Simulated assay, not measured.
Amino acid sequence: MTDLDTELRHLLADPSLPQQILTATASSLQSEDPFAPLTLDTLNATLDGVAYVLTDGVPVVVAMDATRRAAAVLPSIHPGETADAYALRLLTITRGL
């Protein structure tokens, strides 16, 4: 196998930046206050913080696009849903991307 083949397999195996943002958002929700009811403000703040960290050093247009794509697939929050329960649903969606 050539180096190009190896690199291509590596690129295809890596999750996309929006997937990484969603996975890290779910992880953060599960670790911060998993049993508290999730609010839209908390979700948005978590997503924004994660995206900021993960896209550091990436061109602004790429970072904005990845964050927008991640936000576009966020499911709505069910009434009274905990951060942990939401995170599990988010991980299920993320795996399907």
Rank of each mutant, 00 (worst) to 15 (best):
S76F: 10
A66M: 01
A36Y: 08
G57I: 03
R9H: 07
F35T: 12
D41C: 03
L88Q: 15
A26H: 00
A70W: 01
M64S: 11
L17P: 05
T46P: 06
T6A: 15
G96F: 09
L47M: 10
L17Y: 04
T2S: 15
A36K: 15
A13W: 00
P37H: 08
A13M: 05
V50D: 09
M1C: 04
Y52V: 12
I93S: 09
L88I: 12
D56H: 14
S16D: 00
D41L: 11
S16K: 06
V60S: 13
S31W: 09
E81L: 00
T67P: 00
G96T: 13
T46V: 14
G96H: 13
S27A: 10
T42C: 04
E81H: 03
M64P: 04
T23C: 06
E81D: 03
D48P: 01
T2Q: 06
E81V: 02
P59R: 12
L54K: 11
T82N: 07
F35N: 14
I93A: 10
A51R: 07
R69S: 13
H10E: 13
A26L: 00
L22Y: 01
S16V: 00
D5P: 04
T46Q: 10
A87K: 02
L29D: 06
D33I: 05
P37Y: 07
A72F: 02
L8A: 13
L22R: 10
A24F: 04
A24M: 12
H78A: 15
T42N: 08
L74I: 03
I77E: 09
L38N: 04
L54G: 03
R9L: 01
L11N: 10
L47C: 03
D33H: 07
T82G: 08
M1P: 10
S28L: 13
A36P: 00
A85C: 09
P79A: 12
P37C: 02
T42L: 07
A51Y: 04
T25G: 05
V50P: 08
V50M: 11
R95Q: 15
L17E: 00
G49I: 01
P34N: 06
A26D: 00
D5A: 15
L47K: 00
T82I: 08
G96A: 15
R89E: 08
T82C: 06
R89K: 11
T6H: 11
P79Y: 14
M64I: 05
L97D: 01
A83Y: 00
D5Y: 10
P59N: 09
R95C: 02
T67K: 11
T25M: 02
S27D: 14
L88A: 15
A63M: 09
I77V: 14
L4T: 14
L4Q: 14
V60E: 15
Q19T: 07
T39V: 02
D48L: 10
L54T: 08
L47G: 01
M64W: 12
V73L: 09
I93W: 11
Q20K: 15
A63Q: 07
T55P: 03
I77R: 06
E81I: 03
P34W: 04
L8N: 07
T23N: 13
A83R: 09
T67W: 02
P79F: 12
R9P: 00
R95V: 14
P37N: 12
M64T: 13
A63Y: 01
S31G: 06
L12D: 10
V53E: 14
L4M: 12
P34K: 05
A13D: 10
T92M: 10
I21E: 07
